[in-house]
Design a binder for these strands. Structure first.
Lengths: 119, 119
DNA sequence: CAGCATCCTCCCGGATACTG
DNA sequence: CAGTATCCGGGAGGATGCTG
């Protein structure tokens, strides 16, 4: 992905495109959004759904998604702690696009195989 | 952005989503695709359209887009050199999605302003 | 359970100089 | 004109250990 979170904004015409991408960029955000599609999930629940992610990154990505208003985070004041994550209204508005990306990816999966064998 | 070009593929469910994103990720790819929308362009023509890009990065991104089959590159055997870039069939098939991203970005531009002032 | 803090590595991407 | 070559800093992201 790209790197600097804000450096994406210093171009002009594709600006809003880049801005939108910057929200779903980050190695795990799409996967997280994908898994929140079918309802609220707790932190470790997400970890189990995405085995390859580290706690650190899951926390980071969830915080960014929360700051960007794509995900809602609810903390229950109890011991042991309980935190629930769900898609916000705006997060849900992104789902069609994510879906379109998924479909495009599926239809063009040959690309990635080709790229893998080239590596 | 993400970083490693292939590391995106080592997840399961959002896999094709991530794969698709990896193609349009990279700091300038969307802008390049955007500018190729209205026809074939030469190298320096693209440079002028995207003032902030360096030759190095423009070359890199164009090479990757070419390897990924999203852009066609035609070299004319003449002096001085002439190289033309244009969208491939597959590249054009991505345009609707890029457009959707742009629209979403436009509608949610407030987000980015908020993020900027937070930084 | 749901994190935060720290260290460390890798590689993206900028700057600069050179070439067929 | 359309690149390549090289050097370099910074930040993403992995591994590990600790906490309310």
């Amino acid at each position: 992905m790209a790197k600097a979170r804000h450096s994406r904004l210093d171009c002009d015409p594709g600006c809003s495109v880049e801005a939108a991408i910057s929200l779903i960029d980050g190695k795990w955000k799409c996967v997280i959004l994908y898994h929140l599609q079918d309802g609220t999930k707790r932190f470790n629940e997400l970890r189990r759904k995405i085995p390859a992610v580290t706690q650190r990154m899951l926390t980071n990505q969830l915080r960014e998604l929360e700051l960007d208003g794509l995900v809602d985070r609810v903390v229950y004041a109890q011991v042991p702690p309980k935190v629930e994550y769900s898609l916000s209204e705006r997060g849900r508005s992104l789902l069609p696009i994510i879906d379109a990306l998924k479909n495009w990816g599926d239809e063009n999966i040959a690309l990635f195989n080709k790229r893998l064998e080239a590596a």
